Amino acid sequence: MMGKPITGRSFGGCIRYVVDKQDAKILAAEGVRMQNTSTLAHDFNLQRKLRPELGKAVGHLVLSWSKEDLAKLNDDIMVERAKEYMEKVGIRDTQFVIVRHSDRAHPHLHLIYNRVDNNGKTISDKNNFAKNVKACKEITLKYGYHLGEGKEKVNRQALKGKEKIRFELYDAIKAAMKTATTWKGLEAALAKQGIKIAYKFRSGTSEKQGVSFEKGEIKMKGSAIDRSLSYAKIDATLNRNQHVHLYHAAMKANEPLVANQFSEAIRQSIQAEYHHSPDSGKGLLQVLLESQFVGAAPDPMGDADVARHKRKKHEAEQSQSQGISR
Score class of each variant (00 low, 15 high):
G8Y: 05
I77A: 10
G150P: 10
A28D: 09
K72A: 12
G59H: 11
Q318E: 15
A24D: 11
I197R: 00
D23K: 15
A250L: 12
K174W: 01
K219F: 01
V211Y: 00
S280M: 14
A265E: 08
E80G: 06
Q193I: 10
D23G: 14
F11T: 12
L40M: 13
L288W: 00
G148A: 13
K184A: 08
F44Y: 13
L289F: 03
G120Q: 08
E217V: 06
Y85M: 03
K49M: 13
H248N: 11
H276L: 12
H106Q: 09
W65P: 02
R308I: 06
H110K: 11
E149T: 00
F44L: 12
N74L: 02
H110M: 13
E214P: 04
Q22E: 15
T37I: 07
R81G: 01
P256R: 10
A71T: 07
D303F: 04
K200I: 02
N128G: 06
V294Q: 06
L70G: 05
R308Q: 12
A188C: 03
F201S: 06
S321P: 04
K56L: 12
E214H: 11
R16P: 03
Q242M: 15
A224V: 01
H60W: 13
I218W: 07
T205P: 05
Q271L: 14
V19M: 08
T182K: 00
V32P: 04
K21A: 14
K208H: 01
L147F: 11
M220I: 03
Y85K: 03
S10P: 05
G323F: 12
K126I: 04
A188W: 01
A29Y: 08
G59N: 09
E214S: 11
A188D: 05
R48I: 04
A29I: 07
Q318R: 14
I6E: 09
Q209L: 07
E149A: 02
N119E: 15
A191S: 07
D76S: 09
K88C: 12
N241H: 06
G31H: 08
I15H: 11
A176H: 02
H146A: 05
G8W: 06
A41Q: 09
T122Q: 08
A188T: 04
P52W: 01
T237S: 13
S269Y: 00
I270P: 02
K233L: 09
G185R: 00
S263V: 03
K208G: 02
L50R: 01
I77Y: 07
E187G: 00
E138S: 08
R115K: 10
G120F: 15
Y199I: 00
L70A: 10
D75N: 15
H309V: 07
Q320T: 10
Q271T: 09
H110N: 13
N36H: 11
L40F: 09
V133C: 04
T37Q: 06
S66Q: 02
H106R: 08
V18I: 14
Q242Y: 15
L40R: 07
S325G: 06
P256A: 07
G194I: 01
